[in-house]
Nucleic acid binder design. Structure first.
Length: 589
RNA sequence: GCCUCGGUAGCUCAGUUGGAUAGAGCAACGGUUUUCUAAACCGUGGGUCAGGGGUUCGAAUCCCUUCCGGGGUACCA
């Protein structure tokens, strides 16, 4: 629509003798209740026209109608100039751009971006919060790929630390040699079970100590279990062969379990980093900062950065005993990732409880003069809450990822069977379909909400399969595929002899937006943008489908071919767009 | 306390480079199947865009302020 802006500026120049910047021409889609497709707002122009908005709009409308071939007519309503574009214009756009093979494919931009997501702890299974993280990370990576980036998906696994030692210790004490094999329990769940056991036993000890007169704080520090876990962590850091072997064994179980969950979610990674390899990094960076005078050392030997000038606090970057803290590691890891890949941008998909951490991290890297620091971005997303509030593993209120996936598939199965449309499917296809629909519903549910907003999940209310949902879009796609098959669709056709009805025009306009939607979703790191667009498109298609006479039974000709082309492109855009959300669409359902 | 992110229909959410009478889905009610899949379509009702002030021709959108909610503010990660 750039040509409208250009023409309007020319109109103003010729009518009023003054040049105006492009942003004076405010273009918007014409609201449904008025005639036309594009609207120019007259108010910003009045200071150049020196006339009232209605007269200004009238002037420009007349000029455009006379001088721009595509402008067939216009009307003015309260200072809004609504332009009616020629049908031929839309038909040309449809046949030359939308119908082309490259539609929706954006050329490589030569830039490399890293997306770090998932990044789980290895002491317990994944829950709904992780699911949101994984789906967001995967989708953002796909969106960036589609908008021209080279993408590296990275998972930074937190595989060491006190929490893992807790599981290890509890298993050692009370596990009786239980393994995933002999118990039939998924590895990550098994390890998680002992994490819970640890916590329960630890609490008992605390209570006992408090009964003996200790304060809660003392008790928490002196309970034998926590002391033992800390010793275990020290042994781990010292490279104790027995502890390392146990650690490797139990982490192995967890990775096997995570692998299954990742496969079910359909997410993947190009590279895994492990904190056991990175937790010592960052000390060089601290040295560098001291040399550059960005950091300073206190009398006790601890190293700090003063960010009060930026409205933040003083922040510790190295402990007095010379060991790393979280941010030390992250400074080092950021440098390592940069050295490994030399990417232009780097996105961290991490919950909003770490907003402050990343603000500080990026600021420090900038102060250290890292040229790549400006390419860092924290994709911060809101927590997934239950009606009762936050999910808490200790109170057993977490929604387990594997359970949820299983439940979604079962629900999809029962809903599908209720409808009875797939009774003739082979068993294998049925199961694939249930999985398709169940996961489609779950993924869409999580991705349609703007990332930074918190998300409410009610375990007692199953996720919908009707209305603004994944299955709605999947259904629309299946319907299109079925129709095309019945009509024995063949590509081809041109604008000659085609008349556009209102819904057909709507479809052409909506389809035309697809590339811009990819760009916007990628630029704003928001799968929700794509999700909402696809819903609008599917809704528009269903309306179109109901309004026009049955295509299959229509007599062959330009109009029929045009409608089939609309069906085909809509199906393709739905399929491609959903794949950018990590959702697959079925051929039948 | 300070920092930060939210608050839009009964519920879940769209809508912010400032534009027309604020939109969907669910739920409720009514209609559509001798027509290509009714997981669909059409219609009805439903709003103090948290409150107040300001800027503007025009504010859900920008500024100030109050209230409510989340998160952060560790020599934890």
């Amino acid at each position: 629509m750039d040509f409208i802006v250009a023409a309007a500026r020319k109109a103003i120049e010729e009518l009023y003798g003054t040049q105006v910047p492009a942003d004076v021409i405010s273009l918007q889609e014409t609201r449904k209740e008025f005639e036309g497709q594009v609207t120019i707002v007259a108010f910003p122009i009045v200071r150049y026209s020196k006339k009232n908005p209605a007269e200004t709009a009238e002037d420009i409308g007349k000029y455009l109608q006379a001088n721009v071939a595509e402008v067939a007519a216009f009307n003015v309503v309260k200072g809004f100039l609504n332009l009616v574009l020629d049908q031929q214009y839309f038909l040309r756009v449809f046949h030359e751009e939308i119908l082309g093979t490259g539609f929706g494919r954006i050329a490589p931009n030569g830039k490399k971006v890293m997306v770090e997501y998932s990044s789980p702890n290895t002491n317990k299974p994944l829950h709904l919060g992780h699911v949101r993280n994984n789906l967001l990370g995967y989708s953002v990576a796909e969106l960036l790929k589609a908008s021209g980036y080279e993408v590296i998906k990275v998972n930074l696994v937190n595989d060491r630390g006190i929490h893992i030692c807790k599981s290890m210790l509890a298993w050692q004490k009370w596990g009786n040699g239980e393994t995933p094999e002999n118990s039939g329990m998924k590895g990550d769940h098994l390890v998680g079970k002992y994490y819970v056991v640890f916590d329960a036993e630890y609490k008992k000890e605390i209570k006992a100590l408090m009964d003996q007169g200790q304060t809660e704080e003392q008790a928490k520090k002196s309970a034998p279990l926590i002391v033992e876990a800390q010793q275990m962590l020290q042994q781990w850091e010292a490279g104790d062969a027995g502890v390392i072997a146990l650690w490797e064994k139990m982490n192995g179980w967890v990775y096997e379990g995570f692998g299954v969950t990742y496969a079910n979610l359909g997410v993947d990674f190009d590279r895994f980093y492990y904190e056991s390899n990175t937790y010592l990094l960052g000390k060089d960076t601290v040295e560098e900062g001291l040399e550059k005078g960005v950091f300073f050392r206190k009398d006790d030997g601890s190293v700090w950065i003063d960010l009060t000038a930026e409205g933040l606090d003083e922040k510790l970057v190295l402990r007095a005993d010379g060991t790393s803290v979280y941010i030390t590691q992250d400074l080092g890891t950021a440098q390592m990732k940069q050295d490994d890949y030399q990417m232009d941008e780097s996105i961290y998909v991490v919950g909003n409880e770490q907003d402050y951490h990343f603000k500080v991290l990026f600021l420090i890297l900038e102060k250290l003069g890292k040229p790549w620091a400006k390419g860092l971005y924290h994709l911060s997303y809101g927590m997934v809450d239950l009606p009762s509030g936050k999910m808490k593993s200790r109170e057993g209120t977490v929604v387990d990822a594997d359970d949820l996936i299983g439940e979604m598939i079962r629900t999809a199965k029962s809903k599908t069977e209720e409808l009875g449309k797939t009774n003739d499917f082979p068993e294998e296809d049925k199961n694939a379909l249930y999985r398709n629909i169940g996961l489609g519903a779950l993924k869409y549910f999580l991705l349609k909400v703007e990332p930074k907003k918190r998300l409410l999940f009610d375990p007692n209310e199953s996720i919908d399969f009707q209305g603004h949902t994944g299955p709605f879009i999947q259904y629309t796609h299946a319907r299109i595929r079925s129709l095309l098959a019945k009509a024995a669709y063949q590509p081809g056709g041109d604008a000659a002899g085609v008349e556009l009805s209102d819904t057909e025009l709507d479809m052409v306009m909506m389809l035309g937006k697809y590339p811009a939607q990819i760009r916007e979703a990628a630029a704003t790191h928001s799968p929700a943008v794509m999700a909402n667009y696809l819903f609008e498109l599917a809704k528009g298609f269903n309306k179109f489908y109901h309004e026009i006479p049955p295509i299959v039974k229509t007599e062959a000709g330009a109009q029929k071919q045009f409608r089939l082309n609309i069906c085909r492109v809509t199906g393709d855009v739905l399929r491609q767009g959903m794949s950018l959300l990590g959702i697959t669409v079925p051929e039948r359902m």
